[in-house]
């Protein structure tokens, strides 16, 4: 008997008492009724030491201080307007060693969750593959206001489970030393969010 068949047979024997069907009560909130979603998102992001900038105009100013910038191949041209530093497009794919030498990466996101201050990347438009937003020490992430939802259930409904998903809530952190939160371990130590309006 294979391990698979044996384990499945064990589990079926274990359930010989025939437990009855379990109805799942879903009385939790599935839609946020708050009107100030954007302010909530900013509050939660800043609580976890992400830096928030408002308006597309903040981008050129931010990028002017970045020498070597990684971007996904489909980064909107408008985000790079006036950028004079060295641009590294991820085509052909940048090696981990190369990514490690760059100063920052600029991407968009798929969804942002106000309630938890979470940015979700799904490798969709303007996001690139996962390594791109992991190895550089600074992640600049553009969030459109129409990408902001209130609660987790609203975010999950917008995601494709088959895409590789990365949920980011603040910069890399640890609480392993005396349970004090310290920002900055292996992931990007600086997370900056640029909030732009839907049309921008």
């Amino acid at each position: 008997m294979t391990a698979r068949d044996e384990i499945l047979a064990r589990l079926r024997t274990a359930l010989a008492d025939g437990p009855p069907p379990v109805p799942v009560p879903r009385r939790y909130r599935r839609v946020d009724d708050r009107s100030d979603l954007i302010d909530t998102l900013v509050d939660r992001l800043e609580d976890y030491r992400a830096v928030v900038h408002r308006g597309i105009d903040a981008l050129p100013r931010l990028l002017s201080a970045v020498d070597r910038l990684a971007v996904p191949t489909d980064v909107p041209a408008g985000w790079l307007a006036g950028y004079a530093g060295r641009l590294h497009r991820d085509a052909p794919a940048l090696s981990p060693a190369t990514l490690d030498e760059l100063d920052a990466v600029l991407t968009g996101c798929a969804v942002a969750v106000a309630d938890t201050g979470t940015i979700i990347l799904d490798a969709g438009p303007a996001q690139g593959r996962r390594a791109l937003t992991l190895v550089p020490d600074r992640h600049i992430c553009v969030v459109r206001t129409d990408q902001v939802v209130g609660l987790l259930p609203e975010a999950l409904a917008r995601l494709d489970p088959r895409a590789p998903l990365t949920w980011i809530s603040g910069p890399s952190a640890t609480s392993d030393i005396e349970l004090n939160r310290v920002e900055g371990v292996h992931g990007p130590r600086r997370l900056e969010i640029v909030l732009i309006s839907s049309g921008a």
Partner: peptide, 21 residues
């Protein structure tokens, strides 16, 4: 667990994504 609204990183993957991971 950590007493946070959300932990800094959550990763989800489904089998193999060509060219990513």
């Amino acid at each position: 667990s950590t007493g946070e609204r959300m932990n800094p990183y959550t990763s989800m993957w489904t089998g193999v994504t060509p060219g990513d991971g």
